[in-house]
Computed example of a mutant assay.
Amino acid sequence: MKNRQWKRVVLKVGSSLIAPDRKGCSSRYLLHIAKFILQCRDLEIQVILVSSGSVAAGAHFFGNIEKPTVAIKKAMAAAGQNEMMASWNRFFDFPSAQILLTHGDLQDKERYDSIRETIFALLEHGILPVINENDTVTTDALKVGDNDNLSAMVAAAADADALIICSDVDGLYDKNPHTCKDATMIKEVCNIDEAIYAMAGGAMEDGVGTGGMQTKIEAAEKATSHGIRTYIVNGFKESSFELLMNGTNPGTVFTAYDLPMQENLHWMTHTSKAQGELVIESNFDHPIDEHSEQFTSDEIVEVRGNFSEGDIILVSTEDGKHFAKAKANYSSSLLNFITTQEGDEDSNEFRHQTGPIISDENIAVLEQEEQWETDT
């Protein structure tokens, strides 16, 4: 195998592969995926499985409900998760472990580090981590929403060498291959830009899963910036995994950054969710990544949202440019007091005695303008 340089791989398998007919789990497409996992382990390549499918696997327990409520979907996930784990376990003669996550777990740095430690401990003892979003308890504010992006966050947390995302098509096409006969597959992507995103569509209307090519590209962008080579392959074809084992790209490969982002900055940029926003002067011209000690309350125009000391916030200019995510050294309440008491003697003294609002080691400068979601 030419991919012996892989030491750790994250494999993402979607609902349509687990339960294609929403009538419980099926081995129809899982046999060749399980074989690939076994072959990797035989070559001492550690595998982490990110597996969707709990809702689809549990749907048949609830009859033919055309439009299930949120509560019913959560119940389907609870019932289907056991069935999904049992389905995977029957293929293997080694132990597996279930890890259910929410975005709330990943965006809290202490819990994020705890997840890393758990994954490493499982792998060290030869146990297969099987990870899924915890659909039973998650809320809109705490959910990742799709397992493509979850798999990229897991790959970053686990310091993986490769991320393999299974799709229902062979890879990324310049047009929708389901509707355009002249669609051409892109074999390699070296830079994920607007043109690449323009090729992606949403989830198929009649599909079982929640993701589409859009979320797969988002996942690839997260993973490659951490130095993780990312593949989109057709999970329905056994040949996809045979080619991977032979070191051949069966779909679309996204090349990894030559200089990956530091772990803390990657987490801040791609995993954490901004709890609020600082708006600063548009003419702020300091190189904020190198001299952020100069960034004080004097430059603040507006404080948006409610956040505490230590929360991740978005930093924007008055003209709407989003250029950084950072760890706040002060709460929104304190910053609001400082900025709204202009001219007050005590406030002015405090403004000049306090340290920086953010510190240079706790800021991630955005390479391109992003519309980061906040909880405001």
Rank of each mutant, 00 (worst) to 15 (best):
V137W: 06
A152H: 03
A56S: 08
P356N: 08
N149W: 01
D206K: 13
D135A: 03
V208C: 07
E345L: 13
K35N: 14
E83N: 11
L243W: 06
H32I: 02
T374V: 12
I33Y: 00
W88Y: 10
Q294S: 08
E293F: 07
E367T: 13
A198Q: 12
D206G: 10
V137E: 06
Y197T: 04
I99M: 15
D140K: 11
F61M: 08
N89C: 14
W6K: 09
Q107S: 13
S167P: 11
L265Q: 09
W88M: 12
Q39M: 09
G212A: 09
T224P: 03
D105R: 13
A156K: 09
E263N: 08
I300P: 05
A156C: 10
F295A: 06
G212S: 06
T102W: 07
E281V: 02
F62D: 08
D346M: 12
I357L: 14
D93F: 05
E188S: 15
V169D: 08
A203Y: 02
T139Q: 08
T230D: 06
M85T: 00
K216G: 02
G24D: 02
N89D: 13
V144M: 15
D168G: 06
M261G: 00
L259H: 11
N336M: 08
I217C: 03
M268G: 00
I127M: 05
E238N: 14
A77S: 12
T269C: 10
H266L: 06
R229N: 05
V47D: 03
K73T: 00
F236C: 14
T296N: 11
V315P: 05
I165G: 04
V233R: 12
L38T: 10
I48A: 05
A183K: 07
I164Q: 05
Y173G: 11
E293H: 11
H270F: 15
E117M: 11
T252H: 04
F323N: 11
T340M: 06
D206I: 01
